[in-house]
């Protein structure tokens, strides 16, 4: 996973030395989902492969874990951080309570509960389409498309969803239909297609994560 160059990195062994934690603790916290997978940056050094972390993030996270550990609220912290670190474990029962889905999303629900992270993002996409004043059928089109693209949500950088419309006129008949398109930018449509809306999946993923953290 890409880490911006300007972010200062620290080697794993230096993290241990600096904080005094053990390998066992670090690996346990990773398993519990307290340290995001994306923070483990593997780099080749003269001694072979080594793991580095974004320095500021890892040090403040360890401090956070330690401060909470004493209050035995580590499991609460796991829950709070879960959407960020292990989105595949999310099961949510009240999607409309999340701001990105909202009350508009109510019309899109298809089951009572147990919505996965990908399904929540799909709902948020559909709700956004509704909020922009499009038809319910169009929102469902987008929803189904995003639901089917679960694998892309792991790395949604530069992924967009486009809702577009096309009309065909001829022999006294005029047909207008909507379609949706999902992919990594740059996405191109032909000139006869009219774009009705465009969603930035990366931003929606972040919004859903943020909403899950708060709620």
């Amino acid at each position: 996973m890409a880490v911006p160059d300007e972010e200062e990195l620290i080697a794993k062994k230096d993290v241990l030395k600096l904080t005094g934690i053990s390998y066992g603790q670090l690996y346990r916290w990773k398993r519990k989902g307290l340290i995001p997978e994306a923070w483990f940056v593997r780099r080749s050094t003269f001694t072979g492969q080594e793991t580095f972390f974004p320095k500021e993030k890892i040090l403040s996270r360890i401090e956070l874990i330690r401060s909470l550990k004493e209050e035995q609220s580590l499991d609460d912290l796991v829950r709070v951080l879960a959407p960020e670190t292990k989105p595949e474990g999310v099961k949510h029962d009240r999607p409309t309570a999340l701001a990105p889905v909202g009350s508009e999303g109510h019309r899109l629900l298809w089951k009572d509960g147990g919505y996965t992270f990908a399904e929540l993002v799909a709902l948020a996409c559909g709700a956004q389409v509704l909020r922009a004043g499009n038809r319910l059928a169009e929102a469902k089109l987008v929803l189904d498309l995003v639901r089917a693209a679960e694998a892309l949500l792991r790395d949604p950088t530069g992924v967009s969803v486009i809702l577009a419309e096309k009309s065909i006129d001829g022999e006294g008949v005029s047909v207008r239909f909507s379609f949706a398109l999902l992919g990594r930018e740059p996405l191109r449509l032909d000139r006869e297609a009219r774009i009705k809306g465009q969603l930035d999946l990366e931003r929606l993923v972040e919004q859903v994560k943020a909403a899950l953290r708060e709620g």
Partner: peptide
């Protein structure tokens, strides 16, 4: 294994590039 890291490490018949431990 490429890399082994642990606090308490006991290895036999193992080939590794790096072993880090307590």
């Amino acid at each position: 294994v490429d890399e082994i890291e642990g606090d308490e490490v006991h290895l036999e018949a193992t080939t590794a590039q790096v072993v880090r431990g307590g």
